[in-house]
Simulated assay, not measured.
Amino acid sequence: MPEPASTPNLKDQTIADFGEQWTAFRENPDYYGSAELLADLFGPLLSLDDIKGKTVADIGSGTGRIVNMLLDVGASRVIAVEPSAAMRVLKENTIARADKIEYLALAGDQLPSDLDLDCVVSMGVLHHIPDPAPVVRAAFKALRAGGRCIVWLYGYEGNETYLSLALPLRKVTVLLPHKMLVALSYILEIALTTYIGLCRIFPLPMRSYMRGVLAKFTREVRRLTIYDQLNPAYAKYYTRAEAEALLSEGGFADVQLYHRHGYSWTVSGVKPT
């Protein structure tokens, strides 16, 4: 569900928040930056083989994690779209493959319409955009006929217990300065690691995600995951109906959903021919 817009410049504040976040948390080690995790994000909606030889845009590239994943699985060219100060980190983390990347220091809704893309991906980004509809429309226009858009979103269903704790906490943490939030993330990571251990024994909430994803992250990445939940000025947790409507109302056909680990939504749609 959406959090209320508290300032008229919420979009700009969220972009600034992520610029600070990705400048501080620059690395994408091990499983966190792997093709295995990309396959988990796509689920049954898109095969990694479907990326081979394709031109793909990544909306909200941050530190270049998804860009590198896409190139790892064979994308021929990636359009990396990032509006924040993280662009510098993105370029540093992908410098060895810069000949296959076009860097666009733009918001997603400014994606050029003449790219004739095979695919547009946006993993964990649209739920931080107060009005994502213009971004979806821009993705639609940038795709070739028959091209695919696939996005990953925070989900509401399955997260009710978590949200009862996280949303009240976010009312405070979005106001904290960076260093204080980093310190809080260190403390909460200890609790998270303990909870992951308990999930190995007991059928606790979000057990699948804890064991299948977070347990594979380094402790540094777990701290980043906590920071990422508590930092951005805006975050929305989508219901199934809202997630489906996001692409269907943007003109996409054959919209399919995957309830990833029972807590988030991966949504895929095709631009009609």
Results as ranks from 00 to 15, higher is better:
181 L>C: 00
199 C>E: 01
175 L>G: 07
240 R>E: 14
153 L>M: 09
230 L>V: 02
168 P>K: 05
179 K>V: 09
192 L>K: 08
200 R>L: 13
179 K>L: 06
185 S>M: 12
160 E>R: 05
208 S>P: 00
220 E>T: 12
210 M>H: 13
184 L>M: 15
188 L>A: 03
165 L>E: 12
224 L>F: 15
173 T>E: 11
210 M>F: 13
247 L>S: 09
155 G>C: 06
158 G>D: 01
179 K>R: 12
194 T>L: 15
198 L>K: 09
164 S>I: 04
199 C>T: 03
149 C>W: 00
184 L>N: 11
194 T>A: 15
232 P>M: 07
205 P>F: 08
197 G>Q: 07
243 A>H: 05
212 G>V: 00
179 K>G: 02
199 C>I: 01
160 E>G: 02
239 T>H: 06
220 E>I: 06
168 P>L: 09
235 A>W: 01
202 F>N: 07
212 G>S: 09
224 L>R: 02
177 P>E: 14
164 S>R: 15
246 L>I: 12
233 A>F: 02
226 I>H: 05
163 L>R: 14
227 Y>R: 08
185 S>G: 13
247 L>M: 12
153 L>A: 05
168 P>E: 09
173 T>L: 09
179 K>D: 14
176 L>V: 10
221 V>L: 00
179 K>S: 13
162 Y>P: 00
239 T>G: 09
178 H>G: 04
190 I>D: 13
167 L>R: 14
152 W>M: 05
168 P>D: 10
210 M>G: 04
163 L>W: 11
160 E>V: 01
220 E>K: 12
150 I>L: 15
166 A>N: 12
239 T>M: 03
229 Q>V: 11
235 A>P: 03
201 I>H: 08
207 R>P: 04
197 G>K: 07
200 R>W: 13
197 G>R: 07
222 R>F: 08
150 I>A: 02
222 R>E: 03
181 L>Y: 00
210 M>E: 05
242 E>Y: 04
178 H>E: 15
234 Y>S: 04
225 T>W: 11
247 L>Y: 10
212 G>Y: 00
164 S>E: 15
231 N>T: 08
210 M>N: 07
187 I>T: 15
192 L>D: 06
170 R>G: 05
191 A>D: 07
173 T>I: 08
198 L>D: 05
148 R>Y: 00
213 V>E: 11
165 L>N: 06
238 Y>S: 04
